[in-house]
């Protein structure tokens, strides 16, 4: 690690101010950032921990029935307290291991937008709103490719608002080594249609599988899931070819639909 300054503000305003400095970076649970620092792959001048800001931690229900998760809420908290959105709680419960879930945060996960991370699929399939210190961003506008998001420099995710679907399920097929998603599919059925978001598979990061959404919006059954999408643009690596990932998308979508009951 290189040297850096460290601040732990107790309000979003102070955090935003602290982040204004050159090369300052927000620190969530550090589950991604700290290994990066240890490998000397990043050299922020200052880390601003969000863990001291009580306002952006915890899970609650909004008046309009959305599940609101504070940006600095750890996965374990979501697993335990997002019972009104069971598929979301189940997803959080299956991220990493207990140590990771005790520290890693939803804000960190969405800000990082790892192409194999789980939360991005939940946010995108749910049509969530990513709330920051500056604005509200619709999930459809938020994810902009591998490790790329709509966030500006120094912008902090303070809350994520999830509309609760009538039925939803997340199917994660684990990469054998990291146990991130080799492919993960989140299916959410709302009164006005079905949303299907796929993580782990595409070189463009999380995406909506629109062919499946259309088919399932008409007929929400596993049999209605279309044939696997093409392998073009899918990730190919040690753990699976593009064709395999494309194949898994269809398999997992069917399973998710079946699990929705």
């Amino acid at each position: 690690m290189y040297n850096f300054d460290f601040e732990k503000p107790t309000s979003v305003a102070d955090a935003v101010a602290a982040l204004a400095g050159e090369d300052a970076q927000a620190l969530g649970g550090g589950q991604t950032l700290i290994p990066t620092l240890k490998q000397r792959l990043a050299s922020p001048s200052k880390l601003v921990s969000l863990a001291g800001i009580a306002d952006i931690k915890g899970v609650c229900m909004s008046d309009d029935g959305q599940v609101c998760v504070g940006g600095a809420t750890v996965h374990a908290d979501v697993a335990a307290n997002a019972g009104s959105y069971p598929a979301l709680a189940a997803l959080a419960c299956n991220i990493g291991d207990p140590a990771v879930r005790a520290r890693g945060t939803i804000g960190g996960s969405l800000a990082n937008n790892d192409p194999s991370a789980c939360y991005p699929s939940a946010a995108l399939a749910s049509g969530a709103t990513i709330v920051t210190n500056a604005r509200e961003i619709a999930a459809d506008d938020y994810f902009q490719g591998m490790f790329a998001t709509a966030l500006d420099e120094g912008e902090i995710i303070t809350e994520v608002r999830f509309p609760v679907p009538e039925a939803a399920n997340y199917q994660k097929f684990e990469q054998p080594a990291s146990r991130f998603a080799l492919v993960g599919v989140f299916v959410a059925r709302f009164a006005d249609g079905v949303r299907v978001a796929v993580t782990g598979a595409s070189e463009e990061g999380v995406f909506r599988w629109s062919a499946a959404e259309e088919a399932l919006s008409g007929n929400f059954s596993a049999d209605a899931v279309p044939a696997a999408p093409g392998a073009d643009g899918m990730i190919s690596d040690l753990h699976g070819t593009a064709a395999y990932r494309a194949h898994l998308i269809a398999v997992l979508t069917k399973r998710a639909v079946a699990a929705c009951g």
Binding site: F173, P176, L182, H239, G240, T241, Y244, H247
Partner: peptide
């Protein structure tokens, strides 16, 4: 080996 899911599927 390793007989990974992707190899079995292939």
């Amino acid at each position: 080996m390793p007989v990974s899911p992707s190899r079995v599927w292939a």
